[in-house]
Each structure stands twice: as structure tokens, then as C-alpha cells.
């Protein structure tokens, strides 16, 4: 019996150790926590940043179009500093187009709001025109690519309900269902989130007939200044087989870009120090 008791004690200790050990590496089970961290990794790393974006758009017949732009990002600071990893607030985005030639020097300015539709402006240099753009249609092609505006700027996590479908060796698999299905073209989408880094590796969009019609894939991830960053991704339209490859280069975080850059002044006068 003594040995038995001893056994129990040892076993309990062992189990305790194991559980302690596994707790440190435990899979998350709280779906909101997964969603928040994923959203942060995808759109909110550091407090600002810049990147050069190169997009090659392949149509169903293999013809290509190229877009080249530089993106600056500024995040509204966390007002009370308490949200930590879950913080996702307003953002400002400045996109300066380089290629093709007919859109060169065109600037696209977005104020991403949490509580209402985004504010969007487009600056057309030939007319010196600051055009205000309606932003209801978030799920329309971004500059002719297979990426939507919402893919680039981030879909509001409160627009969907999220379910953790399964947890695999490498991934959390989430099913996201829109709260208002009339505003979107999908019935739901499934995300494969890398467990360690919270990088979205794959997203499949399903239509009302439960058929997969659109797929996002992360093709390359780089660690930049400590931030796991998708540097190459692909969006495929499975109905037409057209796809877009999006590459980020010259990614820099924490560039201390001033909020002032995201105003009409710098539409007319591109901030060269940041765009170079």
C-alpha cells in the first residue's frame, strides 16, 4: 500500500508537472483570443509601418497586369494601454501608386474607423483633385486585383461570428460566418491560423451552395524586426482561375510616421522620406 501511495504521489506529481508543462504550450481554446491575436498579427503589428507592394494580377488566360505602390500605416494609440495583444483601433493608411504609369503619383488615403464606414480619399495629380470615395463596397477588387479592399485593410472582426472548428498540429481552424450575409458575397470562410505565430496561412471562402470559390494563401513569411510578416501571398478566384500574387518588400515597422502625413497636405506633396 505504501508503495501504492508513493506511486500515487509520484504519479500526481508527474501529472501536475505534465499539466504545468503543457499549460505553458497549451493550445488556445478561446476563439476570441485567437481571432484577436490573428487580427493583430495581420494588421496591427508595431504601431506603424511601411512596405513596398508589388502585385501581379494573372487573369484566366495568363495575361498579367502589374501594380506597384508604397503603403504607410499609422495606428491610433491604445488610449489606456490596457488592451495589449487584443488592441485593434482606428488606423490611417497612405498608399502611393508608382505603377502602372497612368496611375503614377495617385494617392489613396484611408482612415479606417471602428465605429463607422472608413473615410477614403483619392488624389488625382493630373487634375489636382482630392476626390472623396464612397466606401460601402469593401468587397470589391482593390485596384483590379483579386484582393478586395477588405483583404488589404482588414475585415472588422465584429462583422463575423467565429467558431473554432479544430486544432491541428500546426493550425487553429476557424469558421467565420457573417452577421449580415446581405453585405458580403460569401456564406462563410475558413481560416487556417498558424498556432505559433498566429499568421493566417490559408483562407477558403464558400458560397451559399457551400462551394469553395476563393482562396487566400500565405506563400512566404519573414520575421521583420521581430514581427512575423507575410511577405508573399496569393489570392485565387477559383471560378475563373485568375489570381494575384502580392509581394511586400522593404517592410519596416516602428518608423515613427507622424499622423499629419495622413492628411490632404501630403496627398499633394508625397512624403518622400517615407516613400523612398
Amino acid at each position: 500500500m505504501i508503495t501504492g501511495k508513493k506511486n500515487i504521489v509520484i504519479f500526481t506529481m508527474f501529472m501536475f508537472l505534465c499539466s504545468g508543462f503543457s499549460a505553458a504550450y497549451a493550445d488556445l481554446t478561446d476563439v476570441d483570443q485567437i481571432v484577436n491575436r490573428t487580427n493583430r498579427i495581420a494588421y496591427y503589428q508595431s504601431t506603424d509601418g511601411k512596405a513596398k507592394v508589388n502585385m501581379i494580377i494573372y487573369d484566366s488566360q495568363g495575361r498579367t497586369r502589374e501594380r506597384r505602390l508604397t503603403i504607410l500605416r499609422w495606428d491610433q494609440p491604445d488610449p489606456d494601454g490596457k488592451a495589449g495583444d487584443n488592441y485593434c483601433g482606428a488606423q490611417k493608411i497612405y498608399a502611393f501608386f508608382d505603377r502602372p504609369a497612368d496611375v503614377n503619383k495617385t494617392v489613396f488615403l484611408v482612415w479606417k474607423n471602428m465605429d463607422r464606414d472608413d473615410d477614403r480619399w483619392m488624389y488625382l495629380p493630373a487634375l489636382d483633385l482630392v476626390k472623396r470615395i464612397s466606401s460601402t463596397d469593401k468587397r470589391t477588387s482593390f485596384v483590379g486585383s483579386h484582393f478586395f479592399y477588405e483583404d488589404v485593410s482588414g475585415r472588422n472582426i465584429n462583422d463575423d461570428t467565429h467558431e473554432l472548428i479544430k486544432t491541428t498540429k500546426d493550425y487553429y481552424m476557424l469558421k467565420n460566418t457573417p452577421k449580415n450575409p446581405n453585405l458580403v458575397e460569401f456564406a462563410y470562410y475558413e481560416m487556417w491560423i498558424h498556432k505559433v505565430s498566429f499568421v493566417v496561412v490559408k483562407t477558403d471562402y464558400y458560397d451559399k451552395e457551400n462551394k469553395k470559390y476563393r482562396t487566400y494563401e500565405a506563400l512566404a513569411v519573414d520575421n521583420i524586426q521581430g514581427f512575423p510578416t507575410v511577405t508573399k501571398s496569393k489570392m485565387t478566384d477559383l471560378r475563373t482561375n485568375g489570381y494575384t500574387i502580392l509581394e511586400y518588400s522593404d517592410v519596416k515597422y516602428t518608423i515613427s510616421v507622424s499622423e499629419d502625413i495622413f492628411t490632404e497636405r501630403y496627398l499633394r506633396k508625397p512624403p518622400r522620406t517615407y516613400l523612398r
Binding site: A218, L219, V221, V230, K232
Partner: peptide
């Protein structure tokens, strides 16, 4: 068993991401 069932759907990890050991 469940892993092997899912194996086909599981996306391939992209360059730059590491797999959890198993």
C-alpha cells in the same frame, strides 16, 4: 486518426513559418 483525416485540407505552411513539432 483525426489528423490523418484532415491532412488533405490542411494548408501547407508558407515559407517563414515553423511547424509545431509532432
Amino acid at each position: 486518426f483525426s489528423q490523418s483525416l484532415y491532412a488533405d485540407d490542411i494548408p501547407v505552411l508558407p515559407e517563414g513559418l515553423m511547424s509545431t513539432p509532432e
